[in-house]
């Protein structure tokens, strides 16, 4: 009965909007943990672009649980999605559920977090590229000396990817003794207050020897800055990622060096376009930007669309304002005159 109604509505739409709606697809997305600043933006971009293309979006939020995510995916399949986007909470544990979708003939796109499966297409800001961008930006201002690493949640593959990218850049320098990693800590669930306590304790242990803090995201960077302020360490090179409003403000103030900005609207639109291409029966591998990710250990080759993050420093804050990500007022809130060029005038 319901199915019939759906078909009726669809054909009515087809008549109304022409040929495109004939290919209207239902796209499902399974979020890992929706309650973070960025995913709201992802969903909006995804939904807007899909609507533009005449498709429909269904969502489910696993709230940080692998079991719930498996159930969510089954639920989305039961609701008849044609394409499935998955942000894996645990990218290993989600594979059986993903396999079920593939077995049902539903193509799966791993969104933002790579799921290592030969039949899954990956689209996202590659955490390895993020980690490299962070390390490169810090090396530019602090090419040698004592580095502290504040890493993300240890259970999170994404945190390991970022770490791997950071080490790609600084690893060789550590080996030849240019850089010394004097302390490193994983941070439970990427929590800022945990990063703050860890940083305070690291400062106690290492004191003034710290030359730079390679921090994996902006939330934790806020904890690191608070810890450094208390100890009177100002203006140390510090990295982040996400382009949080608070972080952009810190960059203008000079208390954070960079943030690896992932314009997630670009990602959302990109994923929507891929879903659209699948619905229209196009060959993804022939699309621009396609590449192959190879995991030699697992013997897996998969189609991937990696996106490069933008390195935001005090010199190009304008970019984010132009993109409508933040307002000038937010960037310059409380910035003392003479600190940042962008906030003068």
């Amino acid at each position: 009965m319901k199915k019939k109604a759906k078909t009726l509505i669809l054909s009515a739409l087809a008549v109304a909007t022409g040929a495109q709606a004939l290919l209207a697809a239902t796209v499902g997305v399974s979020w890992a943990r929706f309650q973070e600043e960025r995913w709201v933006t992802d969903e909006k971009a995804l939904e807007e672009r899909l609507e533009e293309l005449g498709h429909r979006l269904l969502t489910a939020d696993a709230r940080g649980s692998s079991t719930r995510q498996a159930a969510d995916i089954e639920g989305l399949l039961a609701r008849g999605v044609d394409v499935l986007l998955v942000v894996g909470h645990d990218t290993q544990a989600v594979i059986p559920a993903v396999q079920r979708a593939l077995d049902d003939g539903v193509p799966v796109i791993a969104y933002e977090r790579q799921i290592k499966h030969p039949d899954v297409t990956y689209v996202g800001f590659d955490p390895v590229l993020v980690g490299r961008a962070q390390a490169r930006a810090l090396l530019e201002v602090q090419p040698d000396g004592n580095y502290v690493l504040i890493k993300g949640g240890q259970q999170d593959q994404y945190a390991h990817g970022t770490y791997q990218g950071q080490m790609d850049e600084i690893g060789p320098l550590v080996e030849d003794g240019t850089i010394d990693i004097i302390a490193e800590q994983w941070t439970t669930d990427w929590k800022p207050e945990v990063a703050q306590a860890n940083m305070e304790n690291i400062i106690t242990a290492q004191g003034d020897r710290i030359d730079a803090v390679l921090c994996s995201n902006d939330g934790m960077a806020s904890g690191v800055v608070a810890a450094m302020e208390q100890a009177g360490l100002v203006g140390l090179p510090l990295s982040g990622q996400d382009g949080d409003v608070a972080a952009v403000n810190r960059i203008a103030r000079g208390s954070q060096t960079m943030t690896a900005w992932k314009d997630v609207r670009v990602l959302g639109r990109r994923a929507a376009d891929l879903a659209d291409a699948i619905a229209k029966g196009k060959d993804l591998a022939s699309l621009p930007g396609a590449t192959t990710f190879t995991d030699e250990e697992l013997g897996i080759e998969q189609l991937a669309f990696p996106l490069d993050p933008t390195t935001i420093t005090a010199n190009n804050l304008e970019l984010m304002i132009e993109a409508g990500w933040v307002t000038r007022e937010q960037v310059c809130r409380g910035v003392p005159p003479g600190t940042a060029e962008i906030c003068e005038s």
Binding site: Q35, E193, S222, A226, A246
Partner: peptide
């Protein structure tokens, strides 16, 4: 202490 209000 954190000088920020965060969701988690």
């Amino acid at each position: 202490r954190l000088n920020a209000g965060t969701t988690n």
